[in-house]
Design a protein around this nucleic acid. Structure first.
Length: 201
DNA sequence: TGCCTGATTGCCT
DNA sequence: GGCAATCAGGCAA
């Protein structure tokens, strides 16, 4: 294993959640399954906070569903919504603080044929341009809820790990989408100019 | 116990 | 641009 492909460690996630959400732009989500490896560059994220954020699942305190948000940072939080979709989050901040970053869009980097087969879609832009789309394309499911993402089959590689893409990408902020409360908060982060984001700000 | 809403997507018009 | 699909959590009764 090359030194450049070491996964982001727990200290990366144990910071202020908006800081982590911004720092995740340009990093690589990597999932190894028996069918093969899929890699996507993270191009869109949203931060969900513990205090003053009514859109956050953790807003009303811990439940069995949102428990991973309150666990140690560097773990996955996968939840089911709208009766048919899953969304993938990375748990941030200190243990006991219910915060996480929702990964909203990826740019396919490796394994796009496998992604297309899972998605039943050929268009590269349609593979990962939405939180539920990328979960399906990457082969993530509820068994990954709570998984440690600092090592193992599901990890995040730092910017520059593959020798492609800018190490200091231009990141723009915007208000979050798909929520009714907390819409005034600028907690959405996007890779400037990327055509793989879910919706233009 | 039961009704309502939602961090979405894809198909239909 | 509208709307159905379909389930877990929250809240009212």
């Amino acid at each position: 294993m090359r030194s450049g492909t070491a996964a982001l460690d727990r200290d990366f996630y144990a910071r202020r959640t908006p800081t982590v959400a911004r720092a995740l732009i340009g990093t690589f989500l990597v999932h190894d399954t028996p069918e093969g490896r899929c890699v996507g560059r993270i191009v869109e994220t949203e931060a969900y906070l513990a205090d003053g954020d009514p859109a956050s699942h953790s807003h009303r305190g811990p439940t069995p569903r949102n428990a991973p948000m309150f666990g140690p940072p560097g773990h996955a939080y996968v939840y089911f919504t709208y009766g048919m979709h899953h969304c993938f989050n990375l748990v941030t901040a200190a243990e006991g603080v219910g915060e996480a970053v929702l990964v909203r869009a990826l740019e396919p980097v490796e394994g796009s044929e496998l992604m297309a087969a899972r998605r039943g879609r050929e268009s590269e832009r349609e593979l990962c341009s939405g939180p539920a789309k990328l979960v399906q394309a990457m082969g993530i499911d509820r068994s990954d809820d709570g998984r440690d993402v600092t090592s193992g089959r599901l990890v995040v590689w730092p910017r520059g790990a593959l020798g492609t893409g800018p190490r200091r990408p231009r990141v723009v902020t915007a208000t979050r989408v798909g929520i009714r409360q907390g819409t005034e908060l600028e907690l959405r982060f996007l890779l400037a100019g990327s055509k793989f984001v879910s919706a233009r700000p």
